[in-house]
Amino acid sequence: MHRTLLLLVVGVSLAFGVDWFLGEFIEEYVVRIINLCGIAIILAVSLNVINGLCGQFSLGHAGFMAIGAYVSAYFTTTLRVLNTETGETVVRAPLFDGAWGFVPALLIGGMAAAAAGLVVGVPTLRLKGDYLAIATLGFGEIVIIMLTNFESVGAARGLPGLPNYASSFWILTFAWICVVSSVFLQRSTFGRALVAIRENELAAEVMGIRVARLKVMAFIYGAFFAGLAGGLLGHLLRTISPSTFGFMKSIEVVVMLVLGGLGSLTGAIVGAIVLTVLPEALRDVEQQAKLPGIRMVVYALVLILLMIFRPQGIFGQRELSLKLLRRLLPGGRK
């Protein structure tokens, strides 16, 4: 308990310090990329619990993000709702105001996404592998199509004017909380049971693990953080539209995870950072080589080659740790 509290205090003060440092000394473009990295880390680490630890291949992460983003935006944004009877546009002030209103809005968004995780998790329990992947993909698409139909959140045009609440401080704090809680989860009996389900569901069940219940819990956990990340992303981009959270977004998160090594927490973090920075770096290459569109082609090629030559990802299921570093450094212990 003391350790948890200590970790939280350390994380928050670190985030505070980094936020101040970034604001003072680093140019805005770089800060933005760091913020996007933080959000990507939350996404990849939370999906790692569902896909990596529990072995349930989900392609619906963007759907959870969309729910989190829209629900949190609903509480923080000035909405213009068209009254269909009178034909007038009603302006509704934000329900939660200021930076301290942001946190409850985010949490409500996360909880809404977690509820969706429950709704998706329970019926898809009996599906495995590809079928689960395609069913979760279908769920994500349904969310997007529903949002496209809701006139009160701007339908296909999207929802503009989200307040500028997602500072580096909040993004890094939540990324820290997500990573630390995932570390605790991995070491707990819950995490070990999830790994048992991944390795052999039938054997796990025979050993007395309540497979159905744990799978749903993994879904809820992953969805909650995906919702948080969605809320943060929304308030960082300041305009959200259903197309932001399309099926490509889910694929992007899966690729981060696979690049780092499915099942490895540090792998997920490294994958998230690499795949957020790489497209930005390639953007310069694209401009200099005068080949618009080459960025995504390179991205796809990297993915295919990675799968052919190193299907287990950079780290496999190992974790990047001081021990591993020491072994790799020259003169280190074998």
Binding site: F57, V258, L291, G293, V297, Y299, A300, I304, M307
Partner: peptide, 20 residues
């Protein structure tokens, strides 16, 4: 899983190659 992700990769490649 590796094959599935490769298939997604090929799809992205053809799509973006097509756009290019």
């Amino acid at each position: 899983l590796a094959a599935l992700i490769t298939a997604i990769g090929v799809s992205l490649l053809l799509q973006n190659g097509g756009i290019m």
